[in-house]
Each structure stands twice: as structure tokens, then as C-alpha cells.
């Protein structure tokens, strides 16, 4: 029997919960808790948003053309610089 979920024990399952890999039973317990506990609801929502924002900022960075050219040169792959 799992002990009754409180704000502290919820934290331990938080990552698995936001990643969607938590078992159904524990998942439902968390949802029941955050429906009644405003602080935990905010923590869950803002944690999801934090991860989302960082993920958004990443996808846009590509290696610049000049950096790529110097990389190929350093690797002795000059003949492959032209794609």
C-alpha cells in the first residue's frame, strides 16, 4: 500500500509524471492531489513550461557555415566543404 500522497512525496515522482512515464495508479493520485492543492498544481504547470521553453530555444541553433568550414579544414576534409 503506498502511503498517502503529500506535497513532499509528490516531488519524487514529478519528473516521471511530467515525462508521462508514471504508472496509472500514481498518476491518478497526483491528479487528485493537484486538483486540491494549488501550490503543487502551479509547480507541475510551471515545471512543464520550464522544460518546454528550454526545448524551444534549442532546436533553432545550427552550426554556422564558417564554423563548419573550419571544422572540415581541421579534420583534413577540405574537399568535402562544398556540400
Amino acid at each position: 500500500m503506498p502511503e498517502k500522497l503529500n506535497c513532499q512525496t509528490l516531488l519524487a515522482s514529478l519528473s516521471d509524471y511530467v515525462d508521462g512515464v508514471l504508472g496509472d495508479a500514481l498518476c491518478q493520485e497526483i491528479e487528485r492531489h493537484i486538483a486540491a492543492c494549488d501550490n503543487c498544481r502551479v509547480v507541475v504547470d510551471t515545471l512543464k513550461k520550464t522544460i518546454y521553453l528550454y526545448h524551444e530555444t534549442a532546436a533553432t541553433t545550427e552550426v554556422p557555415i564558417d564554423v563548419r568550414a573550419r571544422l572540415f579544414h581541421r579534420l583534413d576534409l577540405d574537399d568535402f566543404i562544398q556540400k
Binding site: L11, T46, L47, K49, T50
Partner: peptide, 15 residues
């Protein structure tokens, strides 16, 4: 997993 949770929680605080 432990480090990830701590990193996420800390960043959430900063943000």
C-alpha cells in the same frame, strides 16, 4: 533521474 529532477526544479525556481 535524480540530477534531472534537481536541475528541473532549480530552473523552475529561477524562471
Amino acid at each position: 533521474k535524480t540530477r534531472l529532477l534537481r536541475a528541473r526544479l532549480r530552473l523552475r525556481e529561477y524562471l
